Simulated scan of single mutants.
Amino acid sequence: MAQVTMTTQRWDELKALLQDDRRLQTEYPKVAEYLEMATRLPGTGDDQADAAFDLRFVHYMTGGAAVSSNPYWDIVEPLVFEHEGRRVVNGGRAEGSARLAFAQLILQSAYAYAVPSPQTIEWISGFCAGLPIVELGAGRGYWAAQLSRSGLPVEAYDVEPPDKTENISFPGASGQVDVWHPVRDLDGFATRSEVADYVLFLCWPPGWGDKMASEALSSFERAGGKRLVYIGEPKGGKTGNDAFFDALAARWSLDSVDPHFVSWWTEADVAQGWVRN
Rank of each mutant, 00 (worst) to 15 (best):
W123G: 00
I133G: 02
Y111W: 06
I75R: 01
G126H: 11
T120S: 15
G126T: 11
Y60W: 14
G64H: 09
M61Y: 02
A114P: 01
E82C: 05
F81W: 14
A98D: 10
E95G: 03
R87W: 14
T39G: 15
G137H: 10
C128K: 04
A52R: 00
H59L: 11
E122H: 11
S69W: 08
F127Y: 06
A129G: 08
N90I: 02
S68Q: 07
D47R: 09
L105W: 13
A103G: 08
G130C: 07
M61P: 00
F102K: 12
R56I: 04
S68M: 09
F81Q: 05
L100D: 01
L79E: 13
F127T: 04
S125A: 08
A38D: 14
A101Y: 07
N90P: 07
S97M: 06
H83M: 13
V134F: 03
Y142E: 01
V89M: 08
I75V: 15
A49V: 10
T44K: 02
N70I: 13
W73P: 01
G130N: 07
P118G: 07
V80E: 08
R86K: 14
R40L: 11
I124D: 00
H83Y: 14
S117M: 10
G130P: 04
H83R: 13
L79M: 15
R86S: 13
Q119C: 00
A51E: 12
F57C: 08
Q104P: 01
E82W: 15
E84S: 13
A101S: 05
G130D: 06
A65H: 14
A51L: 14
A98W: 00
M61I: 04
W123V: 01
S125L: 01
L100H: 03
A114G: 11
I121K: 03
V89C: 06
R87K: 15
T62Q: 04
A101I: 04
I133E: 04
G91H: 03
G92E: 11
S117Q: 09
F57M: 10
L131Q: 15
G126V: 06
W123P: 00
N90Y: 13
P71D: 08
R87I: 04
T39R: 07
P132T: 08
L55H: 06
Y60F: 15
L105R: 15
G85M: 08
E122C: 09
Q104H: 13
V58G: 12
V67A: 09
R56N: 12
A110S: 15
G126C: 10
A94H: 02
T44I: 05
P71L: 09
G43D: 05
Y113L: 07
G64K: 09
D46P: 03
W73A: 02
V88G: 06
S69N: 12
G141F: 02
M61W: 01
P116Y: 02
R93K: 09
E77H: 14
I121W: 07
S125N: 07
Q48W: 14
R86L: 14
A114R: 01
A51C: 10
E95H: 06
A103R: 01
L105P: 01
W73G: 00
T62A: 12
T39Y: 02
A94P: 09
A112H: 08
W73S: 02
R93V: 12
R140K: 07
T39D: 15
G63Q: 11
V58K: 13
Y142W: 03
G137M: 09
S68H: 11
E82L: 15
